[in-house]
Design a protein around this nucleic acid. Structure first.
Length: 113
DNA sequence: TACATGACTTTTA
DNA sequence: GTAAAAGCCATGT
């Protein structure tokens, strides 16, 4: 669990109304190229904790990722994302260029917008 | 110990 | 733009 502590922390740092890809999280967590670990971490912590906005974590395609085994909950997450102001296109995908989280960018501009 | 599976990414064609 | 293959690590049997 301690190994993923940084991963969880990173996910928790995702601002409302924005999303981050596994690669983004992995990079910030120091697990560059190990996105699988991030996804696996979600799988592990989700069953133990739900204090993390895991619904803000999506894949590189801009779609919501959910276990092939836990299918049926993606709709709920979509609703949550919509609640945060994230929009989906006709294909149910998200405009990463607009909603992808950019920590560095926020730092320079100031999170206070 | 080894094999198989999994919320993925990236490169090459 | 889509498709296939390689890479990566942890967990379970």
């Amino acid at each position: 669990m301690s190994k993923y502590d940084l991963t969880y922390k990173t996910v928790r740092q995702i601002p409302c109304g924005k999303v981050a890809t596994y690669g983004q999280i992995a990079d910030l967590a120091g697990l560059y190229g190990k996105a699988r670990l991030v996804g696996y971490a979600m799988f592990l912590f989700d069953t133990a904790s739900n204090d993390i906005p895991w619904h803000r974590v999506i894949n590189a395609k801009g779609e919501i990722s959910y276990s092939n085994l836990r299918e049926g909950g993606d709709r709920k997450q979509k609703h949550l994302l919509e609640q945060e102001g994230i929009e989906f296109n006709s294909k149910g995908k998200i405009n990463l260029s607009q909603f992808q989280w950019q920590p560095k960018f926020d730092e320079e501009l100031g999170v206070g917008e």
